[in-house]
């Protein structure tokens, strides 16, 4: 019988702890498929964050390190600089990456650190039970913004891709979503491309994946996907924000 679907080798054979309807599982799978298809697992070191994905070290089959909150890019830097042939990725949520780990994120990008960051943005702190995140939308209700995020007090959400693409050190920055099959396929391509760029030694890559949190958003898994489409995508437009591998028009003209 032909095998048409199986667990990627880069994923371990254990059930994950994620809530029903959470899209972490899809994103894990996409990362694992990319590692499989590029045959990178054997030299990959993954860095798990603090947050919902803290136990990602149990789910990926490559070597794994669990980082302090927000410090995954610094840990990744230490690994990559010590073992230059390795492939290093971090897997971080919005609180981890864009609040407590902002400095580590921005400076890893500025240095053009040859690593890949998978940035999972669901606009809320999941593990701690639904508090306001740096990417929580204006007026979005969370446990710590019970009347909706008041921008006069809590400021504005951080648009990570837009910010990092301004840095000369970044090489490939893209925002994708996993709300539907088409977008899942696009997300897969972007993640795979990021790993390809890293394996070519071409610098800092970050894929922001818009994700859901049915539990803390207080909606059903299906409605969560719709909420993502209706609210997150308009605020955080999908697309490639930076790609140094693109052949520029001028270069074509010169030829």
């Amino acid at each position: 019988m032909a095998v048409v679907f199986k667990r990627p080798h880069a994923l371990t054979n254990v059930p994950t702890h994620y809530c029903p309807g959470c899209t972490h599982g899809i994103i894990h799978r996409l990362v694992a498929e990319a590692l499989d298809e590029l045959d990178l697992e054997g030299r990959t070191v993954g860095i798990a964050p603090v947050g919902c994905a803290v136990m990602a070290y149990d789910y990926f089959n490559c070597d794994m390190i669990e980082a302090p909150h927000g410090r995954a890019p610094a840990i990744a830097t230490g690994v990559k600089r010590s073992v230059p042939d390795s492939i290093v990725f971090t897997y971080q949520g919005d609180g981890d990456l864009a609040a407590i780990g902002t400095a580590e994120t921005v400076h890893a990008a500025a240095r053009g650190e040859n690593i890949t960051i998978i940035f999972v943005n669901n606009a809320i702190y999941g593990m701690t039970g639904g508090q306001m995140a740096p990417t929580t939308l204006p007026n979005q209700v969370t446990q710590t913004s019970p009347f909706g995020r008041d921008i006069s007090q809590a400021g504005f959400p951080i648009k990570v891709c837009e910010m990092l693409s301004t840095l000369e050190g970044s090489s490939y920055i893209a925002r994708v979503s996993v709300d539907c099959v088409r977008n899942v396929n696009i997300a897969k391509k972007a993640i795979k491309k990021a790993f390809e760029i890293q394996s070519q030694g071409r610098g800092f890559t970050l894929i922001e994946v818009l994700s859901t949190c049915p539990t803390n958003w207080g909606v059903s898994p299906k409605d969560a996907l719709q909420w993502l489409r209706d609210n997150l995508i308009p605020y955080y437009p999908l697309g490639v924000y930076k790609d140094v591998t693109e052949v520029k028009k001028e270069e074509l003209c010169d030829g």
């Binding site: 390190i65 410090r71 230490g78 690994v79 073992v83 580590e104």
Partner: peptide
């Protein structure tokens, strides 16, 4: 070797942690 001036002491010690976790003497 690697000399890296980190963005902060926090980042520096975590880079040390990464290097140490990867088996380097750092």
């Amino acid at each position: 070797g690697t000399y890296l001036q980190a963005e902060s002491e926090v980042a520096a010690v975590n880079m040390l942690q990464g290097a140490g976790a990867a088996g380097a003497r750092a």
